[in-house]
Amino acid sequence: MRSIGEYLRLYFMIEAQYIKGRMQYRADFIISSIGMFFSSLATLGIFWVIFESVPDLAGWSLMEMVFIYAFYMIAISPMQILFDHAWQLRFHIQQGTFLKYYFRPLNMMFYYMSEIFDLKGLTQLAVGIVLLVYASLQLNLDWTLIRIALLFITLFSAALVQISIVVIASCASFWVLDSYPVLGLAWKLREFSPYPMTIFDGAFRFAFTFIIPIGFVSFYPSQLFLRPQDVSSLIYFSPVIGIGLFALTYWVWTKGVNSYTGTGS
């Protein structure tokens, strides 16, 4: 068996080459980055329109919303950058090209996901970081060392939640001929995550907290920094939720991989 260190080394080696290769398509890189930049800002436009007509959203100010959104952008970046290949799983499965991932002495999820490193996700990450710094300056947030540590822990957990939702949804293609509706649902749902969960009524809030926990992608952890006084104790479970959900995802993936029979050749 290979150690984590060996896998990391291999990962950097593959991605360094991959990035070198992609950089040859400079126009592709520039255009997709610009596209990502503007689509990241589009949601801010929606916020701006909303706050033109209302002073606050369920008690949350514009700048607080920007913070929640920035947290969300950072939290979904690892999924975008490292797990982007999940989106293509259904094509590989349908066309039989998924077979090749069985033939290397490597962990299959590692090998599969390592094939794509999505550069435009870096733009998203950068925009998220800039917005987070900007919003916390505007809000005069007090960044103690403990809070910074908490920020990293909650971001890590939130990233795991987002990765898990997308990868689990993509695994549907191991059993379903056309898994697009499932993936589409996962994609649509994440658009709810940069909003305060308090604006949703009971059933939705329950679902977004306990069933498809997109509340943990941004809103619950952001509360910890914006309104620490009325944070729910649930948030302290976020690492458990993130790691637990990823473990479940890995289990589903393994089940899928073991049940795949491929196409005829």
């Binding site: 080459q17 290769g21 992609r22 039989g96 090209t97 090749k100 069985y102 033939f103 002495p105 050749s265």
Partner: peptide, 19 residues
Amino acid sequence: AQIMGVVFGQRTQLWWDLP
């Protein structure tokens, strides 16, 4: 996998974007 090599028809197992 360590002791096997596999070539499956026209589906390459090399990295598409790499030299």
